Amino acid sequence: MTIQGPAGPKRRRWPARLAVVLVLAFVAWLAVCWAVLEHPRTEEPAVSDALLVLGPPDIQRMATAQELMERGIAPVLVIATPDAQPGDSPAMVQYYEDKDFCAPRTDYEVICFKPNPSTTQGEAIELRDLAAERGWDTVTAVTFKQHVPRARMILKRCYGGELRMAATDYGFTPLGALGQYVYQSAGFVKAWLTPGCEQQLPGNPKELE
């Protein structure tokens, strides 16, 4: 006759331990996201060779860029114009299609481009090419707060000059902020898997010119 030990209680403890580990991991991830994404390093606006607006060039992001341009931060405004996203409202889709912000101006030059690929990496590649062509040594980039750390990392992989980051704050709700934490975390994973300026994941090739 085989006598079995009290295995049942031990088995029942594993789900509880696993739950504790998962909760602690989730809390740690939230803490890191809060520290990195909600309090990114930005620089005071200073005169640059160009001001780059990372896409999409929504109304708030463009308002920040226009304010900086009116302060004379740069002689050139560069705007990334990716396609509208499936979740955008009809009014926003029309706004992106009209591209009124790309209209020529008399007080400064405006350059609009469609990134290839349609990601921050595509914007970084275009920045590299424009900077090499025009001899830009200092560039200020505008994006939203939670995107600043990842955007800085990706832009610096392609652009070797001085890079300054300016941020606009969308004031996300807690649920919206959590969505950004997930999205930006996934973006960091992708960026770490593609460490070069133009390196792409197999399923997301750069479009042919």
Rank of each mutant, 00 (worst) to 15 (best):
L175S: 13
H147Q: 14
T194F: 09
R134Q: 08
R41Y: 01
L24T: 09
V78A: 04
E198Y: 00
L22C: 11
L52R: 10
Q200T: 06
P104A: 06
G203Y: 13
I125N: 01
V148D: 00
L54R: 02
R134P: 03
W34K: 02
I73G: 06
E123Q: 13
F188W: 15
W192H: 04
R12F: 09
N116K: 12
P40F: 07
T140K: 04
V27K: 06
F144P: 00
G187R: 00
R71T: 13
G5C: 03
L52V: 09
E67H: 12
W34T: 15
T140M: 14
L30H: 10
L208P: 00
P9S: 08
E198D: 10
E97M: 11
A65M: 05
A28S: 12
H147W: 00
A74R: 04
T194G: 07
Y183V: 02
E38R: 07
R128P: 00
Q199K: 08
D49T: 03
A16L: 15
H147T: 08
Y170G: 00
E162P: 03
V21Q: 08
I3S: 09
I3E: 09
A131V: 06
D83L: 09
L155D: 03
Q94A: 15
E43C: 05
L37W: 09
P56R: 01
P174M: 12
Q146V: 09
D58E: 14
V182P: 05
R61Q: 14
D107H: 11
G203W: 15
A16K: 14
V148N: 01
A46M: 10
V93T: 13
Q4K: 11
E109M: 00
P104W: 10
F26S: 14
D137R: 08
Y159W: 08
V47C: 00
Y183H: 12
R157I: 03
T138H: 15
V21A: 15
A191Q: 08
A103F: 04
R152E: 14
D107R: 14
I125V: 11
G8C: 02
V21H: 11
H147F: 04
V189K: 07
W192E: 09
C33G: 07
G87M: 10
A31G: 15
K114Q: 15
W14L: 15
T120H: 05
T119Q: 11
A151P: 01
T168H: 07
G160D: 05
A84E: 11
G122M: 00
L22F: 11
L193S: 13
D58M: 02
P195W: 05
A63M: 10
E209Y: 10
E162D: 14
P9H: 06
G187A: 05
N116C: 05
W136V: 00
F101T: 07
E109N: 06
G5V: 07
L163W: 04
T119V: 10
E198K: 03
T173G: 02
V47S: 12
P104F: 11
E97A: 14
G176C: 07
L54V: 01
E38A: 06
P205W: 12
V20N: 06
A35E: 12
